[in-house]
Amino acid sequence: MAVESVTFALEPRPEPMRRPELMADGVMGMLIFVFTEIMMFAGLISAHAIVRSQVAGEMWPPYGQPRLPVQETAVNTAALLVSGIVLVFAQLAFRKEPSRARLPMLLALLLGLFFVGAQGTEWVALLGEGLTIQSSTYGGFFYLIVGAHGVHAIAAILALGWACYELHKRRLTSSQIATVSVFWYFVVLLWPILYLNVYL
């Protein structure tokens, strides 16, 4: 008995459509980290508000303590805010052509370095005037809150420096620049809140 072989022409099955991810894994991780950091700074700001409310006669800074350089720090604040805006342009430029993001990223990095450098100079001057972390609760809160932000600013500068290097090597991905930008925006947007609470 002869066996006939029958062949069927199979239509190629379409590839299953892959659902796009809501956000990059790095961005999600950074957002969770930023949420925890926001709560830490919220705790510091709250403690500062409580202590400030206990000062008799609303005399703040307390008598005998040096005044903080409000105007000089306003310039630093403006520089940091501009760096955030410049980084937005860098991200937009990266979407069109990655090499176009090089200049705005470097500019944001330089503005960040200016901010940290100016804050360091301010600290040296304040220490010379006698404001130390042990001189009063005023000094303690100043160095704790501004110092904590400074550590984050240095970490953001290192991250952006790494991103610039990766861009130079043509290895920077869109998710990496987004992740670094989230942290940078956190550092930038947090500072005006701290400035209003601590300096004014």
Binding site: L31, F35, I38, M39, G43, S46, I50, R52, S53, Q54
Partner: peptide, 30 residues
């Protein structure tokens, strides 16, 4: 921490509200 002055009590209430609503707001926003 606590004293009887009105400013101090207001600061306690304000920071309690702030610290209670901030995480809820962030989670709701996300």
């Amino acid at each position: 921490c606590f004293d009887a002055r009105d400013e101090n009590r207001q600061a306690f209430v304000a920071t309690t509200v702030f610290l209670s609503l901030l995480p809820l707001g962030m989670v709701a926003g996300a």
